[in-house]
Nucleic acid binder design. Sequence first.
DNA 1: TCAAAAGTGTTCCTGGTACACCCATGC
DNA 2: GCATGGGTGTACCAGGAACACTTTTGA
Lengths: 243, 243
Amino acid sequence: MGNTSTGYDKYAYEPFAVTADLAVLTVRSGALHVLLVERGQDPYAGHWALPGGFVEPRESAETAARRELAEETGLDDVTGLHLEQLRTYSEPDRDPRMRVVSVAFAALLPDAPEPRAGSDAARAAWLPYHPAPALAFDHERILADAHDRVGAKLEYTGLATSFCPPEFTLGELRHVYEAVWGTSLDGPNFRRKVLATPGFVEPVPGAARLTRGRGKPAAVYRAGPAATLHPPLLRPAREGRPA
Amino acid sequence: MGNTSTGYDKYAYEPFAVTADLAVLTVRSGALHVLLVERGQDPYAGHWALPGGFVEPRESAETAARRELAEETGLDDVTGLHLEQLRTYSEPDRDPRMRVVSVAFAALLPDAPEPRAGSDAARAAWLPYHPAPALAFDHERILADAHDRVGAKLEYTGLATSFCPPEFTLGELRHVYEAVWGTSLDGPNFRRKVLATPGFVEPVPGAARLTRGRGKPAAVYRAGPAATLHPPLLRPAREGRPA
DNA sequence: TCAAAAGTGTTCCTGGTACACCCATGC
DNA sequence: GCATGGGTGTACCAGGAACACTTTTGA
């Protein structure tokens, strides 16, 4: 806050620009994808970058992020979906043109509408997270932070349902976890854990669907009301990381 | 980032001021305390507020936070201690004077040096977190977010040692958890869990100390190299939150 | 008939919880 | 002595991991 300022002159300090940048993630055909734009101009002309833009004088960073998301994806209904504030990147030289402080967000989309190129982006596309291309500015760092945060929040929140359509099977939900964590999960145990966590998912009576055009039709579920999962759905132990 | 900007005119947008605000926490005589400053001028003259100040043109928000922390506490050595970026508060009207975007940090101090009043703060003091006084601006929200974050990070990181002096007993470490979580923990089980977590603490050979001037002298430990705890030290279940 | 995915059952074992109990110190 | 905190031992139980097995569909 400006609480310790002694003056009120708006121009006493070098102006800061504030932007909102977005790491928009989705799961397409079993793999994690990220929405990127190709920059049309220098610096970093021709490089891929995260979508984003300036925060306008009368909006919050969250509002700006939601507006940019709608503009870049062509989605009309971005009011309901989950925006997760990651952190703010404020190194003085992160943009060569001027002092830009960026508030970064992660957004999770269920099914990926084809993006449309924005006003000054050459094009926009969903690219696979593995392997991720080189990105402009410090956007690789932001994207990695987004992936870390989302991976961690899958453990103890119902966030995974944000990657799914309104009605989904437990197999589809499991594919979300596997795509984000880069692991494979035991189907039976996953099922039991999800159903044992109150409020995570709710059955849709009578509905059934094939998950990948194969196998036995699966029961269909909706996202439940729980914000946090008790008990959490812990990811499998990795090297140096016992149970 | 300004990546999607079409212009380079620094003054094309209404200037934003960027500040760094700090929720500085410590444990004093078994209770969680927070460092607050009393504002000397309007708005909110006479109210308590979090310490903080403007980010200068050539420094990052982290650097600014560390500088403010040194100025407010009189600590010389703030280079080593842990600063945790919380989130950024950017609602347009959060400061009545002008557009101020605040990057908030939490800082954890082991033992509390008496603060000294800053340039334009009437006074500075450690106040108990329970009950916390009314704060200026949206600082109550920021402080609550800091408490949530620190409480959560105690579970899966070695952060608790940041509240302790370089050498500490397991009793002192347990008091940190109890003060932040507002619970009481079973001593024997706490001890086993801490020692079973590789890299959390390391014994200091031969040393022993009384924890509150009472009881059997306790073995002394140092913070270990582990950044994350495996297995984590989960806080006890609360109402509606089974094991 | 085969492959793929859903779903049920069961066994083993780790790790948490709740204690009882002994030790060393100051008062 | 007694209170206070350190430290060990142990018995019980919930939850996770691994895996065998059945069911239902499309090709």
